[in-house]
Design a protein around this nucleic acid. Sequence first.
RNA 1: GCUCCCGUAGUUCAACGGAUAGAAUAGCGGCCUUCUAAGCUGCGGAUCGAGGUUCGAUUCCUCGCGGGAGCGCCA
Length: 558
Amino acid sequence: MVYEKLRDLTEEATRKSGFEAVNFTVEHPANLELGDYASNIALVLGKKNGQNPMDVAEKIAEVLRQVEDNSLSRIEVASPGFINFFLSKEFFSKSLKNILEDKQFGKNENLKGKKVIVEYTDPNPFKEFHIGHLMSNSIGESISRLIEWNGAEAKRACYQGDVGLHVAKAVWGAVKNKESGIKNQEWGKCYTEGAKAYKENDTAKKEIEEINKKIYDRSDEEINKLYNEGRKESLEYFETIYKKLDTKFDFYFFESESGPFGKKIVLENKGGIFEESEGAIIFRGEKYDNSLHTRVFINSDGLPTYEAKELGLAKIKYEKYPYDMSVVITGNEVNEYFRVLLVAMSLVFPELAEKTKHISHGMLRLPSGKMSSRTGEVISAESLILELKNAVKDKFKETRRDSDDKLAEEVAVGALKYSILKQAAGKDVVFDIGKSISLDGDSGPYLQYTKARINSVLEKCRSLGIESSANGGQNFEIERVVYIFPEVVERASTEFSPHYILNYLVEVASRFNAFYAQNTIADKNDPESPHKAAIAQAVGQILESGLHLLAIPSPHNM
RNA sequence: GCUCCCGUAGUUCAACGGAUAGAAUAGCGGCCUUCUAAGCUGCGGAUCGAGGUUCGAUUCCUCGCGGGAGCGCCA
């Protein structure tokens, strides 16, 4: 990439000017008027040697100006000591050509040969697939795709709690319903009833704990039957949502599997890493780090907790797929458990702990009042998507466009994912349906719309017989942004941050829309028309690739 | 009380120790006989407070204040 070349040139010029080697950066200035790239090397050197950075910059820039390279048009020095590089028309033409020739422009091979497993979504059978799972899914799917675009093989994994107290609560609710003659009760509702009873009623609490044990040892025929039905039903339902979200998992892991295995591992390490206390088996996090807590790994009933299961899971994953990196995406409410877990894991399976990367996300909140839906109950992913879809349909009617169900859903999913991915993961997302589909500004539909517009203009070019050509007589501002895409892909992947892609796409789209407003692209009498068509094509390609990396649908027209 | 995360325009978000802190929304204008006006374009408004490190701090450190999550048998 260009910036690598600029780094090398700067380094060499610095040496030739008689300065020592230091750490420095070559980055895009915040404002493109200042240059396409800027280096802070003179600031670093000036500080180190007590010299005026402007003088240092001038000296280095003087040497750089001697370099014959047709990528560069000019080099400037600016206060307080930046060296600014301006790229040439030749460079922009060449990169435009590159983009048109490479349908996967932006992809790199930094992680070539690496195996990465990404775990996300993790809904629990018997419980609702709620909007929190949407967050995990959107982020996880995008991170998986980013990793693939960095050359690695990414396997998607979904880990599901098919045993545990929450299941017992749901099964308890189902048993009660059956006893009172209610049929076909939804599992989500059974769970809600069970959870309520568990909190409020001591008898129910004991019954649920009893059921929990029975689920683990599968000792009760009646319970087994209910359990099997519920599990199957939930899992099939989840698949219908994955389809809408364009996710396909390679592996499914279950707590019924990681539980016993995790328990075994903990017991094997009892006495050393884990110790017995009050009938449970615990890990004393404080022993290793003051900010950690003691965590229970096996409870006093002999059942493995989240932590033990997770420990077992790391190993199970590795046996199934010997990974170089394991990315685990969860809500940030488990952050501290995960920290403790990683310390415990570093003692039991040091090589796995080292390969594990935990990414957490905040909650998806709805602005109060608007759609906070029946008193505090969780909102299901399905109902949110449906609501969005209806809002999109209304919007289509308003603007008198044709729409079908599929298109409305693509726009709805795009709006939703955009809202989730637009900010750095970790913080809560405030999701406003109206804003997300308003399209007055940055939104999923804005990107989709821009892409659809490009599709349309390119069709017009084709019908007029205008062929894209990267050779043009002039330069357009938009060209100073399109070549950057690979850098963004690289950064987003190494930092596990899809929002870099999203922010970049908005910038490209907005610049393109300005370009589109100022220029007629398809014009037989304009000698620049092929060049403009090439720009539209390149931007279209970047939007297409970028939307793919975000797993946002890209409708052909809208 | 302890631990972790967070505090940026009215609101929702950006800013990899650097240049004039960017967008979008919301408000008021302008632009469709011409490729999709769900677009473009013009005009205000912000770094929670106090110190410190640095040539340079929204960013790093300390202390306040405010918000969120968690604090031994749920996940």
